[in-house]
Simulated assay, not measured.
Amino acid sequence: MPAILIHGVPDTHRVWNGVRRRLTRSDVEAWDLPGFGNPRPEGFDAGKQEYVDWLIERLERVGEPVDLVGHDWGCILTARVASVRPDLVRTWAGGNGPISSRYVWHPLAKLWQDPVEGERFMAALDPASFAKDLVDGFDAPAEPVEEMVRHVDDTMKDSILRLYRSAVTMGAEWEPALSKVTAPSLVFWGARDPACPIEFGHELGEALHATRVVTLDSNHWTVLERPAEVAAALEAHWAQGTGR
């Protein structure tokens, strides 16, 4: 019964390295989403529903319910999986990915959703400048963000644009089904997240009847800034949710 960790945007599995080093269990996998350090299948359009379908197919191949964890878009996508295929999820945990009709996309997301400005942004993207913008705009830790941005290639740029443009009304579309999540749930959230305010973490926790909402003294990238605390929260959650 493995634990599966799903990253967000513009991340890869590497965003979980600090958390994984601090976990005591050995059955932990961090997957790369298609287009994010992982080739996109033929005909894969990189919309939000396609990512959910891809996760469901991969999880079905595991053959047993998993401890599913997501951050940022990983939080959004895994919560959707847990709501439509609860049979695949033993426990769920996620953070800094709002699923709410009240949520207003942050400025960078809005730019990516614009068919003209988004293309212009990606065409002119300079890794060093992009990393600095993320560090300054999201109050993010510099070194891991710089490492993260080094892996942003043309496929990831295109995937980001496609994903965000498919998700303009994601909150209103996916929020109602959160009530169908049956897995014991944990929400962890950075209290200083400028893109996804903490109120949406508490709101998600209420929607999922979460056993805990862990508020961390962190920005958006809790898994980079507070890996030990995230790992400890996950292990406590898994122990409680599975009786281990």
Rank of each mutant, 00 (worst) to 15 (best):
L5N: 03
L5F: 15
H7Y: 06
G8F: 08
G8C: 07
H13S: 13
R14K: 09
R14T: 08
V15C: 13
V15H: 00
N17G: 05
N17S: 13
V19Y: 01
R20S: 02
R20G: 03
R20N: 00
L23Y: 04
S26G: 13
E29V: 13
W31V: 04
W31T: 03
F36Q: 04
G37T: 04
G37Q: 08
G43E: 12
G43P: 09
G47I: 08
G47R: 12
K48E: 13
V52K: 00
L55N: 01
I56Y: 05
R58M: 09
V62H: 04
G63I: 11
E64I: 01
V66A: 09
V66M: 10
G70C: 07
H71R: 00
D72Q: 03
D72V: 05
C75D: 12
C75A: 14
I76H: 01
L77E: 09
L77C: 09
T78W: 03
T78I: 00
R80T: 12
R80P: 00
V81H: 02
S83G: 08
R85D: 13
R85I: 14
P86K: 07
D87T: 03
L88Q: 10
R90V: 12
T91Y: 06
G94Q: 10
G94S: 08
N96L: 03
I99E: 08
Y103D: 07
V104K: 13
V104P: 01
W105I: 02
A109N: 11
K110D: 14
D114V: 11
G118H: 07
G118D: 10
R120T: 13
F121G: 05
D126Y: 00
P127G: 06
A128C: 03
A128D: 15
A131K: 01
V135Q: 00
G137I: 10
G137P: 10
F138S: 10
D139C: 06
A140Q: 06
A142D: 14
V145L: 04
V145T: 15
E146T: 09
M148G: 01
R150Y: 01
H151A: 14
V152M: 10
T155I: 11
M156S: 06
K157I: 03
I160D: 02
I160M: 15
L161P: 05
L161K: 09
R162C: 11
L163V: 05
Y164M: 13
Y164D: 07
V168N: 03
T169D: 15
M170P: 00
A172K: 12
P176Q: 06
P176L: 08
S179R: 15
P184H: 06
S185H: 01
V187L: 12
R192T: 11
R192C: 10
A195Y: 00
C196H: 12
E199N: 02
E199Q: 14
F200M: 05
F200E: 02
F200W: 08
G201Q: 03
G201S: 05
G201M: 06
E203S: 08
E206P: 01
E206H: 10
E206W: 02
H209D: 15
R212Q: 13
V213L: 01
V213G: 01
V214N: 06
V214E: 15
L216F: 10
D217V: 09
D217L: 09
N219A: 15
H220Q: 10
W221D: 08
T222K: 00
T222H: 02
V223A: 12
E225N: 03
E225R: 08
A228I: 09
E229W: 04
A233Y: 05
L234T: 04
A236R: 15
H237K: 07
Q240R: 12
G241T: 01
R244K: 11
